[in-house]
Design a protein around this nucleic acid. Structure first.
Lengths: 338, 338
DNA sequence: TTGAAAGCGCTAACAA
DNA sequence: TTGTTAGCGCTTTCAA
């Protein structure tokens, strides 16, 4: 597949190749007449500038690395959608990689992005250790972490206020009359989940009800894991009137187990999720949940990153967004006992 | 962000920079001793080769363009997941773009991929005209189309046998006793949909039942559109005992409308989808559907493309996979009338 | 086994 | 306004 280069165009036009370059880059130091003529010729010859060569001299690839744990996860793919939309307008393209939640893979990918000379990377981290694992590399490329609270780490991140989200969730359930609320899927190894369970606990304490947990013995969340855990839970009589699931995927698993066990939701049991993934809004599911504002999360991440890149800012920004409650059909009011 | 280059390493090692290059590329014409020493030094200096510069001279970026209509669509994101997995093993990375189903955007993106000098592109086309629109550019980069039947066009594609899938669907419903089967969401402007409705019609003819359609007046498919269309349908008494939806997203919309109208599925009406998107397997949904084998589709696409690239094959391949029926809970047996 | 040098396709500083 | 030229960081002949 023979490619036509700037030299071929120059030869055909009978000018030097810097003149062609000037026409292409929109340089002012060239006559409008010549530019028109050259541009026309480029079209005729089917010439498109070689971005790789341009990147070399410009020291900018206009490429952004996007490292997610798993693009087939609806939360991630929606984020990718928004991120692509908002960066392409600004002349960037996305190099997509899946870390598969492996810290090892994640490090390899991060190094790969560095050697590919991407202008920046947006990272949806594999776990709560990602920041620590990657920190020796963070000086090599502008980076923003998404969805993980890095507390006061000196690196940009944007996330949702998971503590507050969980707190709100408990308040909502309490307002509906629930006094026995189980937190389902508590999980180690993730700041996000740490904060969610802390928010739950704080709210319980403030409202004078007893916090209690069903721990997630799996290290990741998926519908299947939620289902297995819930099956276990439903094998004994349940005292609780409401379950607060750590994630929507967990909640979906609970839904499935409940259906099999003949437990009606919300009639017998209220269910509240966290994330508001796309699936949750589907007919027949209608999961009430705490929403992470994905579009906003994406645009904040993009803004932070491009600021860093384009203004050569060397600082960092932390943005914590407040989640909102999306009421659907899995929670109902009950009369508080006692 | 100062980057260390091959020259810095060479200087530090007291060798010429071609020696460093040889250590890195695994060239045989270098002593094992020197290589070890250099490699060690690279690690110490935190040096990673500049892929952009390498691409220039190698005339290969090890980058593949992936153009989808919308990565937030679960079908596409799963494809992306598999494609990434199978290409990264082979040293490639993916540049992801969304065409938003706009032929105009799609052409711009395709040109962008050409100027980025990707080694190949995998295209999930915006519509049935994509091949024609893009054909002037197809000579510039190895390409494979996914999910659209290009008939006998001289370009690689991999797709599912949509005709056969629809035919199988009708046979299944017929076997369950259904004689009045509505095809829901017939749509123009897509070979895929053309073939599906042809398969439906052929099966009806062969089985001696009357084909009839509810046309999709929207040009794209989404849950919302399916919902609106179904609402319209359910506003009058329905003769049919089964609906064959052109896509799972349509079927999901039907599910929602049915729920609102108090039509029980499958008790009052059987529903069959097409695609088997992830959502369809969710608890409480359990849509019976014709499955497109996504993982296989992805690996065939990757194989076709990499064959073309790595073996500099100038021909093309057509691969049409047979779909399978996934039985879940939205279809039930009825006693045929008459 | 190693070094010197050309060249990949482009941009931009400098000259004309 | 245009041309000449250096150089971006690398791989790969060709010589030594």
């Amino acid at each position: 597949m023979k490619q036509v280069t700037i030299k071929d165009v120059a030869r055909a036009a009978g000018v030097s190749y810097s003149t062609v370059s000037r026409s292409l880059t929109g340089s002012p130091e060239i006559s409008e007449k010549t530019r028109e003529r050259i541009l026309q010729l480029c079209r005729e010859m089917n010439y498109t500038a070689n971005t790789v060569a341009r990147s070399m001299v410009m020291k900018s690839t206009k490429l952004l690395g996007l490292i997610v744990t798993d693009i087939s996860n609806p939360f991630m793919s929606e984020m990718a959608y928004y991120i692509d939309g908002q960066t392409r307008d600004r002349g960037y393209n996305i190099v997509l990689c899946n870390s598969l939640r492996s810290p090892e893979q994640e490090r390899i990918l991060f190094e790969l992005m560095i050697s590919r000379k991407v202008d920046g990377v947006i990272l949806l981290p594999a776990d709560s250790e990602s920041y620590r694992n990657l920190s020796p590399l963070l000086g090599s490329v502008p980076t923003v972490f998404v969805g993980e609270n890095l507390r006061d780490a000196p690196e940009s991140y944007v996330t949702v206020d998971n503590f507050r989200g969980a707190y709100m969730g408990v308040e909502y359930l309490y307002g509906l009359g629930h006094r026995k609320i189980l937190y389902f899927g508590k999980r180690k190894g993730s700041t996000t989940h740490q904060l969610r369970s802390e928010g739950y606990e704080a709210a319980c304490r403030d409202l004078g009800i007893r916090p209690h947990y069903l721990n997630n013995t799996f290290s990741s969340t998926s519908i299947k894991h939620g289902y297995q855990l819930a099956l276990q839970l439903f094998s004994q009589p349940l005292e609780d009137t409401a379950i607060f699931a750590a994630t929507d995927t967990n909640a979906l698993g609970i839904l499935q187990a409940a259906e099999e066990k003949g437990i009606r939701i919300p009639d017998d049991l209220s269910l509240l999720g966290f994330d508001n993934i796309r699936d949750s809004g589907l007919p027949r599911i209608g999961l009430t949940t705490i929403e992470q504002p994905r579009k906003l999360l994406a645009s904040m991440a993009v803004d932070s990153l491009l600021d860093k890149i384009e203004n050569e800012l060397s600082g960092y920004t932390h943005r914590i967004l407040t989640p909102t409650l999306v009421e659907r059909t899995t929670c109902r009011a009950v009369t508080p006992e006692g």
